[in-house]
Design a protein around this nucleic acid. Structure first.
Length: 421
DNA sequence: TCTGGGGTCCTAGGACCC
DNA sequence: TCTGGGGTCCTAGGACCC
């Protein structure tokens, strides 16, 4: 048996946790660069505000309805997420952190102590008490079914936010009323194709011939069908697999047209990527850079390209990664283009230096490890920051975040103060 | 003016090897 | 005249997730 616990409207709830004055008001959170709406609370959804709607288009509606608007504050959300996870982990020992607002638990054997329903309610109460966040709980025999139950818990308030289904006929009743697009792993494209084949409800999919599903789609859909039938195809992944690739990319606050600005941006992304790489305790062999214009700017010349550099020796030294990224950039840079976005990708990640070749002595930098450790340590402490000259100083293209809330959980100067009169 | 960022898995097809 | 079969590895692209 699996439980899926997820936080309702995570980003908005995090903002509201420190702003009790916003109770009852519609709240939305914007994507990076204040580009589009990526999170809405219940009140904002009721206004008809849609997911991924561009901010500038939604603005009149937001202003008319006195909606509280926030830039994304990932530092805050990540910190709240860690707290949420630790509350759940205290009550359910075998857990898998699936995303910033979701966890799976293996709850086998739990029913000897209490019902799944009672367990779900206890989890909800504890999370609410310790974090102010409200979550939904779904419990069933497979992850895919637990997801479906969780969806039901969020959709129907009468469930009290908890749906645990072990009996087949009750599951089938639920599958009969939900459209096939609600299934975990069925997106827009496959949903459309399925509909055209007459597969409309989740139950239709559950009864679909698995060989046909495999032939027409892929083994992924076949597994999904098996999961709907109660056969476990996706197990609990308690220890996160090491990452296979790592990406740092951003849209620019203002279009970039000068090579020097692009070099600064790419250096900054490469620096950040190298920091993440060292956090993961991995080494990179392949560094790649991409640049592109905005697909929405129909009047502009459209251009996008990507270049890859392979390091002789896998590295986690920022200087190697910045150098490789700059070499890649110089191969794809074109003048006279209004760039909207760029990114650095680290691929072919490894545990440590693989087999060293004959020339490795020349390629390795001496003292690299201790230098990087020292820089990381200083930057983590947050008293000051060591940065690379190539990143530039407060560049024009920096991300727009005009409506950023304080880092209530992670910055001394932002800690909320309660005044007692 | 203004439209997010970071991942995974699978498949098809080409290059290459013996 | 006639030009194999089986395998691996890599890459690009598509689909999905949050």
């Amino acid at each position: 048996m699996f439980a899926l616990i997820d936080v309702n409207g995570m980003y908005c709830a995090c903002e509201q946790a420190f702003r009790p004055d916003l109770a009852g008001r519609p709240v939305v959170v914007l994507s990076n660069n204040d580009g589009a709406i990526v999170a809405r609370n219940r009140e904002a959804k009721a206004l008809g505000l849609k997911m991924a709607e561009p901010y500038f288009k939604a603005r009149p509606v937001l202003e008319r309805n006195n909606v509280a608007v926030f830039s994304s504050n990932y530092t805050l959300y990540a910190s709240m997420s860690a707290r949420f996870a630790s509350v759940v982990e205290a009550l359910a020992p075998r857990t898998e952190i699936y995303s910033i607002d979701e966890l799976f638990c293996d709850v086998r054997g739990l029913q000897t102590a209490m019902t799944f329903d009672a367990f779900g309610r206890q989890l909800r109460d504890e999370v609410q008490l310790q974090t102010t966040l409200t979550c939904g709980v779904g419990v069933a025999a497979t992850k895919t079914l637990a997801k479906l139950c969780n969806h039901a818990a969020k959709t129907w308030p009468a469930t009290g936010g908890v749906v645990a289904l072990t009996e087949r006929h009750r599951l089938e009743k639920l599958m009969h009323i939900l459209p096939v697009e609600e299934v975990w792993g069925v997106g827009r494209r496959i949903g459309k194709s399925l509909n055209a084949m007459g597969v409309r409800t989740v139950l239709d999919l559950c009864r679909m011939d698995t060989r046909l599903a495999r032939r027409q789609f892929s083994v992924v859909l076949e597994r999904t069908i098996r999961e709907l039938r109660g056969e476990i195809c996706f197990g609990l992944e308690e220890d996160a697999e090491p990452k296979q690739q790592l990406v740092v990319s951003r849209s620019f606050g203002e279009r970039v047209t000068q090579l020097q600005d692009m070099q600064q941006a790419v250096t900054g992304y490469a620096v950040r990527a190298a920091e993440k790489l060292r956090q993961e305790k991995r080494y990179v062999r392949v560094v790649s850079v991409f640049v592109r214009t905005s697909p929405y700017a129909t009047g502009d010349i459209q251009y996008g390209n990507q270049a890859t550099e392979t390091l002789i020796v896998p590295s986690q030294d920022t200087r190697d990664i910045v150098e490789a990224a700059q070499r890649a950039l110089s191969r794809i840079w074109r003048d006279g283009i209004r760039y909207a976005k760029a990114g650095v990708m680290l691929c072919d990640l490894r545990d440590r230096h693989a087999q060293l070749d004959l020339f490795s002595d020349n390629a390795m930098r001496s003292g690299s490890d201790s230098l990087m450790q020292t820089i990381d340590k200083i930057n983590r402490e947050g008293k000051s920051r060591i940065f690379y000259a190539g990143e530039g100083i407060s560049p024009d293209f920096a991300m727009r975040r005009r409506l950023l809330s304080p880092s209530y959980m992670t910055s001394w100067k932002d800690i909320p103060v309660a005044v007692v009169r």
